[in-house]
């Protein structure tokens, strides 16, 4: 296997008396696509939030590129090179497409020491990035609230492809997409992984996981119930791991 990008070591997360994560350990390699599967409430989204700086783990260690890693805010995770696409979309619908594409990292020009938005440069880059991904949006200057759910999700996906980074977390990124857009989205994921970027994708759709992932990690009731390479398992075995019918059956578990 390729070099380790992110190693999770015994991550625990408690909300009061409820233990959402009971010691999660697995790793993601450079250029590897890991599909994170599990039933509703298994703790997948919580795990994503811990990696992306949205929440702090109760205990446990993360090692990112060989160094101890801990993000207190999403800004810190971004600075480290970790991008996240959330399940509920992270767009400001009251702002136009360009503004959303550059949210938090606007291009500026300094005039008398004061940073001003460089709208033209940003519009150009946004237009190119969307065109490259084959996303058609009527007006880059139109507010996002006028766009359809699929167009919004496409903007989010294109945003992460454009900004790249080192590791990308996708929390059910295709929930609002049509067939064609989903196919293109899966292609995009392969494309970024080929550049050596690690990808973690949460999905409920088994077919998608097998289409795009190198490895499947199943979380069940806050623990890793299975960690197998896609080529060495099949959908039935994975479903068994998700529902808890089989535990081993499909290859070595994480420990």
């Amino acid at each position: 296997m390729s070099e380790k990008l992110l190693v999770l070591d015994n991550i625990r997360m408690s909300f009061g008396a409820i233990e959402a994560l009971k010691g999660i350990s697995f790793s993601i390699g450079k250029g590897e696509v890991v599909a994170l599967l599990g039933d509703n409430g298994a703790g997948k989204s919580t795990l994503v939030k811990i990696i992306s700086g949205g929440q702090k783990a109760t205990s446990g260690r993360m090692i990112f590129e060989g160094q101890e890693y801990q993000a207190n805010t999403p800004a810190e995770a971004k600075a480290a090179g970790i991008e996240t696409v959330y399940q509920d979309l992270s767009l400001c619908t009251n702002v136009d497409v360009v503004g959303n594409f550059f949210m938090g990292r606007e291009i500026t020009r300094k005039i008398a020491g004061i940073p001003f938005l460089d709208e033209r440069a940003m519009e150009e880059i946004t237009g190119k990035a969307l065109a490259n991904a084959g996303t058609r949006i009527p007006s880059l200057r139109g507010k996002v609230e006028h766009l359809s759910g699929g167009q919004r999700q496409a903007i989010e996906l294109n945003r992460f492809v454009h900004w790249g980074g080192k590791l990308i977390l996708l929390d059910e990124p295709f929930a609002a997409l049509g067939v064609e857009q989903t196919r293109r989205g899966l292609e995009m994921i392969r494309h970024v992984a080929n550049q050596g970027i690690g990808v973690v994708i949460i999905t409920h759709i088994m077919q998608q996981a097998f289409q795009v992932a190198d490895r499947i990690v199943v979380i069940r009731q806050g623990v890793v119930a299975g960690d197998v390479e896609c080529s060495k398992t099949n959908a039935d075995a994975v479903i068994g791991m998700i529902t808890g019918q089989t535990l081993a059956g499909a290859g070595a578990a994480s420990n």
Partner: peptide, 25 residues
């Protein structure tokens, strides 16, 4: 309308969570 600070304020008003996730303080 023309500075990142103002743009961020408008974004916070539109979707505070999204702004936070995008790394805006």
């Amino acid at each position: 309308t023309k500075t990142p600070f103002g743009r961020h304020l408008i974004m916070i008003g539109g979707n505070e969570t999204a702004a936070f996730r995008a790394g805006i303080p």
